[in-house]
């Protein structure tokens, strides 16, 4: 009995935290989304969301998030794999993690200089006779900077699952005559799929609501759901519409969480049934 009440006592901070900072905001967002500009109860915001502007916005948000996640994965997986093979794993890992401690805005500002018309990249291009290119304020620069910022978040989970994988399984696959490609697709990748899924969650969901980078690097020519929410709250002062977009953003997050959810049942970890 005593241990039981003790346990629920320790739960209090957690429950209070969840109620105040997770449940309450979501309820408030849902509540605000049900009021129009004049504070009357209505579903007009939801109707509005399904007009062409917001649907197009959602689609383009998804499209950019998809591209960003794709490139991040493409770079992060081989990097993580290579990391597990190096001698000083922890040191290399630290070098990759350190940039993520620096404020996101600072890194973004740095890229304004790097990509500028008179920046180092253009100097380099001129050296090779290619001539000055407009790099800043293009889709390319937006995707490049976003990928750069998200890479550590993709590498970490993949590295962890690759590191936990039992290397003898690869030897076993080889011994049984599997080719390198087959070993990868049939053994290594399936065993690290959980790391990939957490990586995708950590990149795709924030990509949907990126907003400072859209202005500083993409010159507002890329609009994400995050930008639209910020605009509705700060500029239009239409809290209802802002909340409605937020409700959909939360919905998309839940869907993605379910799609990339971890199915632990019956899975093999290091060859043992968990």
């Amino acid at each position: 009995m005593k241990t039981n009440s003790n346990r629920s006592f320790y739960l209090i901070p957690y429950v209070v935290w969840m109620l105040l900072f997770v449940v309450a905001p979501i309820v408030l967002v849902g509540y605000f989304s049900l009021f129009d500009l004049h504070g009357n109860f209505s579903f007009v915001n939801y109707q509005n969301f399904f007009t062409s502007v917001y649907l197009k916005l959602t689609l383009s948000s998804f499209w950019y998030a998809l591209i960003i996640t794709g490139f991040t994965l493409l770079i992060a997986y081989p990097t993580a794999y290579w990391l597990t093979k190096t001698k000083h794993k922890q040191l290399w890992l630290l070098l990759i993690i350190i940039p993520s401690w620096i404020n996101l805005l600072l890194k973004t500002y740095a890229f304004i200089g790097i990509f500028g018309v008179f920046g180092p990249i253009n100097k380099f291009l001129e050296l090779f006779g290619i001539g000055k290119q407009q790099i800043l304020y293009t889709d390319f620069s937006f995707i490049f900077v976003s990928v750069y910022i998200f890479i550590p978040f993709m590498i970490l989970p993949i590295f962890n699952s690759l590191d936990k994988m039992n290397p003898t399984l690869i030897d076993a696959a080889r011994d049984l005559g599997s080719s390198t490609w087959n070993t990868f697709t049939k053994v290594i990748f399936p065993l690290t799929i959980n790391g990939v899924k957490s990586g995708i969650q950590a990149v795709f969901i924030p990509s949907l609501s990126l907003f400072m980078i859209t202005r500083l690097i993409a010159g507002n020519k890329v609009i994400t759901l995050g930008t639209a929410i910020e605009q509705q709250f700060l500029v239009t002062q239409n809290w209802g519409m802002g909340s409605t977009i937020a409700v959909f953003l939360i919905l998309f997050m839940v869907i993605i969480m379910i799609l990339t959810g971890q199915k632990d049942k019956g899975e093999l970890v290091n060859g043992h049934n968990k």
């Binding site: 383009s60 605009q231 239009t236």
Partner: peptide, 20 residues
């Protein structure tokens, strides 16, 4: 007024999305 200002912003958003 909020209503028209909202309209301005929505159209501005539409324009921004069109800028490529």
């Amino acid at each position: 007024g909020v209503e028209t200002l909202g309209k301005y912003n929505e159209l501005f958003l539409e324009f921004k999305m069109d800028a490529q």
